[in-house]
Structure formats: structure tokens, C-alpha cells
Amino acid sequence: MPDEPPASRVRRPRMTPERELELLTTTIDVLREVGYEALTMDAVATRARCSKATLYRQWPGKPQLVAAALYATRPVDASAIDTGTLRGDLLAFVTTLAAQAEQDTALIAGLGHATLTEPALALALRESLIEPEHEHVLSFVRRAVERGELAGTPAAMAFLPQLLFAALFTRRLFEDAYADADYLVGFIDGAVLPALRNS
């Protein structure tokens, strides 16, 4: 009879994609309720009905778990957008985000504050969420250049992700309103497209 492998070498079944999404969605639910500072791996594990060890097998810590949760539950997948025009791509991106602006503005503001005191969170958000999504958004402009919509790569392209992010999450501060679809369409037509076409 062959020797049985030591317990440390026994392979555990991999988590299914459905279960992983359930854990990440639960993380967002807890994050919305208590904020980043008060969120703990224990609280997520309790809500998700799993062990804390299960979470740590998938994510090294709270910053990585939160970043993964934000990426997995993002309202729009920019990589899937290709309408055939630069304006169409930009509108498809921002109008989908507008539907969640009211509930996401406070969440993003809280995370922004947390990154000031927790570099690990800032790094996790950049690596897992911001940089991949920024690259997809910049691809809207690259395709426009390839189609001949733009004469060349515009200087404003380097600031496009920041422009969109600011429009989405700062309207509440300036106008006491959330960034709805009408506001964002006006922003794209009045500010973003002119900047890209004239730079």
C-alpha cells in the first residue's frame, strides 16, 4: 500500500469562480456598511460563511481582498467596449458607471482617504484595479487613432483616466449632485472630446 502524502501536501479543491465571486461580493457589502478601516477579514468570513483561512489562501490580506472585490464587482468591463467610435466607447463606459454613482461616490471617497494612511491599499488598488482599467480606457483612444478619427496620439490622452474619474466622483463636492448620465454625456462632449481632438 503506497504511503499517504503528508497532510501539508494534500491538495485542497480549488475555489469555484462562483464561490470566489460570492466572497468578493460579500466583501463589497461589508465594505459599504462599515468602511475600509472597520472592515476585517473576520467580518467578511463570518458574513460569507467561510473560515478566515479560506480568505487568506486566496488573498494575502485586506488590501488585496478589497482591490480584488472592487475589480470583480465593477459595473462595467472596459475591455468589452468597442462601439466603433471614440465617442461611443467613452459614453458606453461612463453611462454605465453613472448608474452606480450615488452608491459608489461615498465608497470611493472613503477608500481614497484610506490610501493616504495605508500604502498597501494604494498599491493593491493601482495594481489590481486602476492600472488594468486605465489601460482599457486608453485603448479607446488608440483605436480612434488607428481608425483615423484622431490625427495622432493626443497629449490629453495621458490624463484621460484621471479626467473621467474626477468627473464621476467629484460632482457631489462641486454641485451637491451625483454624476448622472446626462452630466457625464455633457462632460464627454464638452470637455473630454475637445481635449482629445485639439491636443
Rank of each mutant, 00 (worst) to 15 (best):
V192P: 03
V192N: 00
A166V: 11
E18S: 04
F174C: 00
G88R: 03
L21F: 09
T96M: 04
R47W: 05
R32L: 00
D180M: 13
L150C: 05
R57E: 09
R147C: 00
R74P: 00
L129N: 03
A67T: 07
R57P: 09
R49H: 11
V30H: 09
T95E: 13
T96I: 07
V192S: 01
Q162D: 03
L196M: 08
T73M: 10
H113E: 10
R126K: 15
M41P: 02
V76Y: 12
L107S: 04
L184M: 13
E4A: 11
A179C: 03
L31G: 05
R12A: 03
T27I: 11
I108K: 13
D3H: 12
L138W: 10
M15W: 15
A38T: 10
L121H: 09
Q103N: 07
T95M: 00
M15D: 03
Q162M: 01
F159Y: 12
K52G: 04
P161N: 04
P132S: 11
A78H: 14
H134R: 15
E20F: 03
D189W: 00
R19E: 06
S128C: 04
G88N: 02
L168M: 14
P132A: 04
L150W: 10
G61S: 08
Q100M: 07
T27Q: 02
